[in-house]
Design a protein around this nucleic acid. Structure first.
Length: 770
DNA sequence: GAGCACTGC
């Protein structure tokens, strides 16, 4: 480590300072100048000791030489924080260009940005910034910008060639989120267009180094070159427009405008933690791959000799065995859901209570996404001396949350995954085996601070039979949002889009049909104006976006705004299994006999009222009072805060589009009529036996127990979600008048069928349509 | 008459 030698002579640093510095994004007390100096040295030392540091020059060189580079670096290599700094120093931000780094998660974007800002000794939001939904910490001088992958996709809607960026780094590419996958195809297209631009060619011919132009040319560009949006796309049917634009650029060249007007090439860097480099390289035309050493401690892996019949029982026994036989160190147990975690918690407490006097104690802490934040924070609290912490976690602990102190991992090898059937439109949650990559990720959680052990509750043979990598999200979910965004980006031929893993034809065609039904696409399959254009602008599921637009003419846009904001977040009510009755009682305060949608509107209104009373939760006391309000109503404060953020954001967009926000007041029938008009495809009617039949699919469905309509028997309802667990459950349900359907959706329902369906003698058996 | 992994705009 040639660069580190310089620091060896330094006095050893106070260990407390060191541990603090290791925590990303943690708030620090204001330090004295001396402390600040020590800290600065420390940061420099840490930087230089990272495995990536010795590869600095090589990396800059490789990015200069290759348009696309694949960087494989294990956990702890420092690639996320260092590579952007190297490229910044290597001249990639000249001419006001930006290095963009995408992350799959918001917290990562924020914490890494603050760490890098500190390393560069600048304020967050200045040279180093981040951009996530609801929060933009960037400015005109920002040159290194961390952001969520979805955020960069949104930016592409306004700037289709991402002209601000000289380099886009896609981090955690192995996670293959739906946004990352769309970005791949998009970036590839942008890179091709930008290289084909006249200046790209000019550069190649002349071997010119990095472009030198004055700052501000980016905005000038976009002002003058408004046509780029249409001209930029290979799949665009108006390809001839691109030719025209090249001609224009040639003219500019002749007139000496070239250096101001034209585009610099886009560098793409794909960073992944797994060894699946070949797939990325193949997709990006045989792109060069570089490997960076990681810094992970060894983890011993143990398998069972025989397959386990009951993985929960096996997990329980293994946990107790580790506790009794192994050295100190916390245990992380991966389970599939809230129910499993809660029952395991009870079982562990039962067993511990039977331990003989003098046995070391266990502190059990659960963590899963629906758990309110204050309870989630408990996993970060150290156990008292002599007590072992056992964390019972879902997938959340695999990547989203890093818990310090873990030395033992117990992995049953299962995960609860959401599946989507494009043919029926039914989503299902199923417990399925994890992939090898996931197993590796889980065991790695034991080796972050020292050597660890991982107990896999399956045989080695079973491990080898697992899939290598998890099926990318884009192959598993509803594509309506993605297809709408691609259309908005000018990509008309979605079936021909260059996906790294192509979704099934059926899934794409179903989404196209869905969007057409919503009026977002024209008969030619193009984005319709204004409906499609406006829908694409709203950061909502397409169906909710349409409902939002429709609500303006039903004069209930205030109510719909509240409803779609609430429908966009999950787990509004937190329901511990042992407090079902109390939860239902608390819900009554907001319940509407008409259904869940109005109930949600009531909850959000009540929350806003509470906020008004106590003011924005700036000070501790107000925060506590708000938290208290949430607790007594069994409301998840984090979810409601998110709903409020979405509410504000959509409100801004709606006003930006120039649409009116109107309240229907006490008359909820117009709101319910609007729900019927928006969600008519998800209508269901009561059958004689009390179950419901979905009108479009003919499926037998049941109202989910979490609905306020559960146990009630309305004649006709609309719903927002159909999930298959033990039954086909519908969630988010509201009562409607069956006659509204033919009136509001005449292309799908006719009055005669509806009447027949509800006549006593027909007993509702006749299917409405095929 | 009884239940829901994780992200993201």
């Amino acid at each position: 480590m040639q660069f580190g030698d310089h620091f060896k002579a330094m006095k050893p640093l106070d260990p407390s300072v060191k541990s603090e510095a290791c925590v990303l994004g943690q708030k620090r007390k204001k330090s004295t100048p001396k402390e600040a100096a020590v800290r600065k040295c420390l940061i420099l030392e840490q930087k230089c000791s990272l495995p990536i540091f010795s590869a600095r020059e090589k990396l800059i060189h490789q990015v200069n030489q290759n348009n696309t580079l694949i960087v494989i670096g294990e956990t702890g290599s420092g690639k996320t924080t260092q590579l952007p700094q190297f490229l910044y120093a290597g001249g990639f931000c000249k001419a006001g260009k930006i290095i963009g780094i995408t992350q799959p998660r918001r917290v990562a974007a924020v914490s890494v940005a603050s760490r890098v800002a500190e390393e560069m000794d600048v304020e967050v939001g200045k040279e180093v910034g981040f951009s996530i939904r609801f929060e933009d910490a960037t400015s005109s001088i920002t040159r290194i910008k961390y952001m969520t992958d979805g955020m960069l996709l949104r930016e592409a809607l306004l700037d289709p060639l991402l002209k601000k960026y000289s380099v886009v780094i896609v981090d955690e590419a192995h996670e293959r989120t739906i946004h990352t996958d769309v970005l791949f195809g998009l970036l590839k297209g942008i890179q091709a267009r930008r290289s084909n631009s006249i200046e790209g060619k000019f550069r190649e011919e002349n071997g010119a180094e990095w472009k030198k132009t004055k700052r501000g040319d980016v905005t000038e560009d976009s002002k003058r070159n408004g046509n780029d949006q249409k001209a930029a796309w290979p799949h665009n049917q108006k390809a001839n427009m691109f030719e025209t634009s090249i001609e224009k650029e040639k003219d500019h060249h002749a007139n000496g405008f070239l250096m101001e007007k034209s585009l610099s090439p886009l560098k793409i860097v794909i960073m992944s933690a797994t060894l699946d480099a070949q797939g990325f390289s193949d997709y990006f035309g045989g792109a060069k791959v570089v490997y960076i050493q990681g810094r992970q401690f060894p983890v011993e892996i143990y398998y069972t000799y025989m397959p386990e019949a009951d993985y929960l029982d096996a997990a329980l026994i293994t946990t107790l065995q580790v506790h009794i036989e192994e050295d100190p160190g916390d245990v992380l147990v991966f389970l599939t859901g809230q129910e499993e975690i809660e029952s395991m918690e009870r079982l562990l407490h039962d067993r511990i209570s039977c331990f003989p006097e003098g046995t070391a104690k266990i502190m059990v802490v659960p963590i899963f996404a629906a758990l309110p934040s204050d309870q989630q924070m408990k996993v970060f609290k150290a156990a008292p001396v002599g007590t072992r912490k056992v964390i019972l976690a879902t997938n959340i602990a695999e990547t989203s949350v890093t818990i310090p102190g873990i030395r033992y991992v117990i992995d049953p090898g299962l995960v609860k995954a959401r599946m989507y059937n494009p043919r029926t439109g039914v989503e299902a949650l199923a417990i399925v085996p994890i992939s090898k990559a996931q197993a590796l990720q889980r065991s790695g959680r034991a080796g972050r601070e020292g050597p660890g052990k991982c107990f896999r509750l399956y045989t080695e043979e079973a491990f080898h039979k697992l899939d290598d990598v998890t099926v990318p999200e884009i192959r598993r979910c509803n594509l309506s949002s993605v297809v709408l965004q691609l259309k908005a980006l000018g990509i008309d031929d979605v079936l021909g889009f260059d996906f790294m893993d192509k979704p099934s034809r059926m899934a794409i065609v179903k989404s196209l049909e869905h969007l057409y039904t919503l009026g977002a696409l024209t008969d030619e399959g193009k984005l319709s104006n204004p409906v499609g254009v406006q829908m694409a602008r709203l950061p909502l599921e397409p169906l909710f976006a349409k409902a939002m637009l429709m609500s303006v003419s039903f004069k209930c846009s205030e109510e719909m705004l509240a409803a779609v904001a609430m429908l966009s977040v999950e787990s509004i009510f937190f329901t511990p299994q042992d407090k079902l009755k109390e939860v239902n009682l608390a819900k009554l305060r907001f319940s509407s006999s008409e259904g869940d949608h109005i109930t949600y509107v009531n909850v959000l209104c009540a929350y806003m009222g509470e906020l008004k009373k106590i003011g924005e939760p700036q000070d501790k006391k107000a925060k506590k009072s708000l938290q208290n309000w949430c607790n007594i109503h069994f409301i998840n404060g984090r979810s409601l805060k998110r709903a409020l953020d979405i509410h504000r954001q959509i409100q801004g967009y709606i006003q930006g589009i120039g649409l009116e926000l109107l309240s229907c007041g006490e008359d909820y029938s117009s709101f319910r009529r609007c729900l019927a008009a928006s969600f008519f495809l998800n209508a269901a009617c009561k059958q004689p036996d009390g179950t419901f039949r979905a009108l479009a699919s003919g499926q037998i469905v049941s109202i989910h127990p979490s609905s306020v309509m559960f146990g009630k028997k309305p004649d006709c309802i609309i719903f927002n979600e159909l999930v298959h667990t033990n039954k086909h459950y519908i969630r988010n349900v509201t009562r409607i008048d069956p006659l509204w359907l033919p009136e509001l959706a005449p292309r799908f329902y006719c009055t005669k069928d509806i009447q027949t369906n509800f006549l006593p003698d027909s007993q509702g058996q006749k299917p409405l349509q095929d």
